[in-house]
Design a protein around this nucleic acid. Structure first.
Length: 743
DNA sequence: TAGTTTTAAGTTTTT
DNA sequence: CTTAAAACTA
């Protein structure tokens, strides 16, 4: 009776939940109920194994997933709410707040986002372009993903130039002087601390008796190291993942982690979840037929428990306006006929920029929608300005924040003065406030800096003197946000929100942006108001400020979600990447065109990642799946002709219904129906098996197969480097040269 | 030096 | 077409 929550599980799921002792690797296909298994497992560990909820650590990759997991686990057993459910990064931040001092990191650190990292780098690399700086920032971030320090010989794996090594070293030096951290540090530093402080490591191994990791296929090397450091002989480890859904390689995710897990955790038991409960059979078949073209995969056979259903639709459309109209039509029809609600639909696209066309179309036709992720609220200038003020309040060594706001609005403190102050601060423990008070400056700059110092001091004293009581904090958290937007100025709030209000107002940033609003008609003042509303949930204290900043850095969807009146009935606009872990009744995969998805000029391994992305997108659908492919697309303001995606050539035509005007050369025949003779394809391709060639990028190679792929034949080439690539035959002549033949 | 106008450049994907 | 960098003027 007490175990009735286990009855809804199939035998494999149940086996995974009841498993104990040795490490467990769950290979969970799309839609196989892996969240159910993890949440049930958490509840089971508490109920039947008698684990203290606080001794359970469950790690996910996104905040959304963490929230959902917490919610679902609590439904099964309320005590699960006390388990530690976090993203890797938020766990790292939590760890460093407590143990950072062991590595010389003040616990009042602020987390730098990519933008902040770039501004710090630009002060280190005086005459570099923004693109170069971004490149370096990317590489430093990758280095940390792979747990590589500036002096690690393996760093040449990222970039072999000495220049990079020295910039990385300088960056680390400067960062530790400032006392802040970047995203990579949130994982890397905890590992370093655990390794150099065995007694701390022991404490954590004693504290967590079970560690569960979701989406393990997207863990990077540093995250794997962190997992290893937290795991003692008595720690139960359970990781869940699907190699076919690994889509974050560009961010350092290593599929190797999942493939080699059994070797690195001895005695690992593997359980496969291969029953798909989400999608109908044709949807699953279409998705699988594409990812089957990948070479490096474990391979699995997902079975569709839901049985047959509507065939996925492939719609060929003239251009992206028609594409948006097509989507609108499908959605409107289904809602008008009562077959679906708005919220049953999701529009998927490869790049955030593609959302715009759908937004304008939906707005005009009155279709309610919400855009997931892309709303770059925290990247807006006015928001970053306000946050920089707050960051500087927490950490007077924050050079990046100082540069950003000391002269905004203009106070007469120009770049020359700013550099002078920062330079001088080196000799003064990098304290910019302290240095600012003493330093000699031109009268105009002096007056401006005094204003700025006064502003920060006022903010500080407001924080320190007005300690909020616990009772007041509770009230603040319960209090609903008031949305009194005003064009005249900001409306003040209460508590911490009021402190932010005072800072933003007195700093002149509010007026500065209000003036800009009047000129450009922007909504910047409203955005600032939105930030104040978000702040109103935090207590007026040093800790409240710190929590607020940390929350914003780690979960950028926050304001967006809370402003989103909960579960309104609306269509979801979302990137393929963002759909991971989600499901929808009906899904439209848009822009399935060559050059868009997959994007152009990519290497074989990147192509495989895009294929997995295709697989992830398609397997989000429960009942209906659509692909749209346009003949023309506007890019950079120009309209250019486009071709169907390679993936549309690969997808099993037997599980597809095609509409619209079929592009020239697109073969709609089902796989088995087309069986032309080899020589014929080879003739058409003008390539033969065994033929040699030279490729500008990959060197010498030999043709190992010529296959028919509808948009002209495809030539598969084995290169001397060991790589295997395929090309459309008409591609020849640009980068490829035939050997032993003349033209 | 601050703020504006002109010109060039550029799109992955995210914690 | 949008955004960022460079050039320009008051």
């Amino acid at each position: 009776m007490s175990q009735s929550y286990l009855d809804v599980l199939n035998s494999e799921q149940k086996r995974a939940v009841l498993h104990t002792g040795k490490p467990l690797l769950i290979l969970a296909g799309a839609g196989s109920g892996k969240t159910r298994v993890i949440t049930t497992k958490i509840a089971w560990l508490i109920r039947e194994q008698g684990l203290d909820p606080r001794s359970i650590l469950a790690v996910t990759f996104t905040n959304k997933a963490a929230r959902e997991m917490a919610e679902r686990a609590k439904l099964i057993d309320d005590r699960a709410g006390d388990a530690m459910l976090r993203t890797f990064h938020s766990f790292g931040a939590w760890f460093l707040r407590r143990n950072g001092p062991l590595a010389g990191l003040d616990s009042g650190f602020v987390i730098y986002d990519d933008d902040d990292v770039c501004s710090l780098l630009s002060s280190l690399m005086e005459n570099s372009t923004k693109a170069e700086i971004k490149q370096i920032a990317y590489k430093i971030s990758r280095a940390k993903d792979y747990f590589l320090c500036p002096n690690d010989p393996k760093l040449s794996f990222i970039d072999s130039h000495k220049k990079f090594h020295s910039i990385y070293a300088m960056y680390e030096e400067r960062m530790s002087q400032i006392g802040n951290v970047d995203f990579g540090d949130l994982i890397k530093k905890p590992v370093e601390i655990l390794r150099s402080h065995p007694e701390t490591a022991q404490r954590f191994r004693d504290r967590f008796s079970a560690i569960l990791v979701d989406e393990y296929q997207d863990a990077n090397v540093a995250q794997f190291e962190l997992l290893k450091e937290l795991t003692g002989p008595a720690t139960y480890v359970c990781v869940v993942g699907d190699d076919d859904q690994s889509i974050y390689r560009f961010r350092g995710a290593e599929v190797k982690n999942i493939l080699e897990f059994p070797n690195l955790f001895s005695g690992t038991e593997i359980i496969r979840l291969e029953k798909n409960y989400r999608s109908t059979e044709p949807i699953l078949r279409a998705a699988s037929s594409v990812v089957d073209n990948n070479q490096g995969r474990l391979g699995k056979t997902l079975s569709a428990t839901r049985g047959n259903g509507k065939l996925p639709v492939l719609a060929f459309l003239p251009n992206q306006d028609e594409e948006a109209a097509f989507c609108a039509r499908q959605i409107e029809d289904s809602v008008r006929q009562g077959r679906a609600k708005w919220s049953h639909w999701a529009i998927l696209y490869r790049t955030n920029a593609q959302s715009l066309g759908f937004e304008t179309k939906f707005l005009r036709r009155g279709i309610p929608y919400r855009v997931v992720g892309s709303l770059k609220f925290y990247e807006r200038e006015e928001i970053k300005d306000a946050l920089a003020l707050l960051s500087f309040l927490v950490n007077p060594r924050d050079e990046v924040a100082f540069r950003r706001i000391v002269n905004k609005p203009a106070r007469g403190v120009g770049p020359a003065s700013v550099d002078k102050i920062i330079e001088a601060a080196y000799a003064n423990e990098n304290d910019l406030m302290e240095t600012g008070r003493r330093i000699d400056l031109a009268p105009k700059a002096r007056a401006g800096l005094n204003d700025f110092i006064k502003l920060i001091e006022d903010g500080k004293s407001l924080l320190e003197n007005a300690q909020t009581t616990d009772e007041e904090i509770r009230k603040l958290q319960i209090k609903k946000r008031d949305s009194n937007k005003s064009r005249e100025g900001l409306a003040s709030g209460e508590g911490f929100s009021n402190c932010v209000y005072m800072l933003v107002k007195n700093s002149g940033i509010a007026d500065y942006h209000k003036m800009q609003d009047d000129v450009t008609g922007n909504q910047r003042l409203n955005n600032l108001q939105e930030l104040l509303n978000a702040a109103s949930q935090y207590p007026l204290s040093q800790k409240g400020l710190q929590d607020f900043l940390e929350h914003i850095e780690l979960d950028r969807s926050l304001v967006n979600d809370s402003a989103d009146t909960g579960n309104v009935d609306s269509v979801t606009l979302i990137t393929f990447h963002n759909t991971k872990g989600l499901e929808f009744q009906n899904v439209i995969m848009t822009g399935v065109e060559h050059g868009v998805f997959p994007r152009e000029n990519i290497k074989e391994d990147e192509l495989e990642e895009e294929r997995r992305l295709f697989y992830v997108g398609a397997t989000r659908a429960m009942n209906e799946l659509y692909f749209t492919s346009c003949a023309m697309r506007r890019m950079y303001g120009r309209t250019v002709p486009t071709n169907p995606s390679l993936f549309l050539h690969e997808v099993d035509k037997g599980s597809l219904q095609i509409t619209g005007s079929i592009p020239y050369g697109f073969n709609t025949l089902k796989k088995n129906a087309a069986s032309p003779g080899h020589s014929e394809i080879e003739k058409a391709a003008d390539w033969k098996r065994g033929e040699s060639l030279y490729h500008d990028d990959h060197g010498y190679g030999e043709v190992i197969a010529v296959t028919d792929s509808e948009e002209g034949p495809v030539v598969r080439v084995h290169f001397q480097t060991g790589k295997e690539l395929h090309f459309h035959s008409e591609y020849q002549g640009s980068a490829i040269t035939k050997i032993g033949r003349d033209y």
